[in-house]
Computed example of a mutant assay.
Amino acid sequence: MPPLAYRGRFAPSPTGPLHFGSLVTALASYLEARQHQGTWLVRIEDLDPLRESSTATDQILASLEAHQLRPDEPVRFQSQRSEAYQSAIDQLLSRGHAYGCACSRKELRALGGHHTAACHERRLAHPTPGQAIRFALNDDIAHWDDQLLGPQTLAVRAEVDDPVILRKEGFFAYQLAVVLDDIDQGISHIVRGSDLLDTTGQQQQIFRSFSATYPRWLHIPVILNEQGQKLSKQTHAPALNNDHAGLNLFRALKALGQQPPAHLSQGEPGRVLDWACTHWRRERVPLRPQRENDPPEH
Rank of each mutant, 00 (worst) to 15 (best):
L4S: 06
A5L: 06
A5K: 12
P14D: 05
T15M: 02
G16N: 10
P17K: 07
H19C: 09
G21A: 10
S22G: 12
S22H: 15
V24R: 14
L27E: 04
A28Y: 14
A33I: 08
A33H: 09
G38E: 04
L41D: 09
V42Y: 03
I44K: 06
E45D: 15
E45I: 10
L47Q: 13
D48F: 07
R51L: 04
S53F: 02
S54G: 14
A56M: 05
T57C: 08
D58R: 12
I60M: 08
L64Q: 12
L64K: 12
A66S: 07
A66H: 03
V75R: 09
R76S: 15
F77D: 01
Q78Y: 11
S79T: 11
E83H: 15
Y85E: 11
I89H: 12
Q91W: 09
L92C: 12
L92S: 09
R95P: 01
G96H: 12
H97M: 05
A102I: 06
K106P: 00
E107N: 04
L108R: 07
G113C: 13
H114S: 14
H114N: 14
T116Y: 07
R123L: 13
A125F: 05
A125D: 11
P129K: 06
G130R: 09
G130C: 07
R134E: 03
R134P: 03
F135I: 09
A136F: 01
L137G: 06
D139T: 07
D140W: 12
I141M: 10
I141R: 11
H143L: 12
D145Q: 15
Q152H: 02
T153N: 05
L154G: 00
L154E: 11
L154D: 04
R157T: 01
D161H: 01
D162G: 03
V164H: 03
V164Y: 05
K168G: 02
G170S: 13
F172Y: 15
Q175N: 15
Q175L: 09
L176W: 09
L176P: 09
V179P: 03
L180C: 10
L180I: 14
D181W: 05
R192L: 08
R192W: 10
D195S: 12
L196N: 11
T199R: 04
Q203G: 08
Q204S: 01
F207T: 01
R208D: 08
S209Q: 10
F210P: 06
F210Q: 05
F210C: 04
S211H: 14
A212C: 09
T213W: 02
R216D: 14
L218C: 15
I220H: 03
I220S: 01
V222D: 04
L224P: 08
E226H: 14
Q227E: 14
G228V: 11
G228R: 13
Q229S: 07
Q234L: 01
T235S: 15
T235R: 05
N242L: 01
H244W: 00
H244A: 06
N248W: 07
F250N: 14
R251S: 12
L253V: 13
A255F: 13
G257H: 12
A262C: 05
L264Y: 11
L264M: 11
S265P: 02
Q266P: 00
E268L: 14
P269C: 00
G270K: 08
R271F: 01
V272W: 13
L273V: 07
D274L: 07
A276S: 12
C277H: 03
T278F: 00
H279D: 02
H279M: 03
R281N: 12
R282V: 01
V285S: 02
L287S: 00
R288Q: 05
P295H: 07
P295A: 09
E297R: 08
H298N: 13
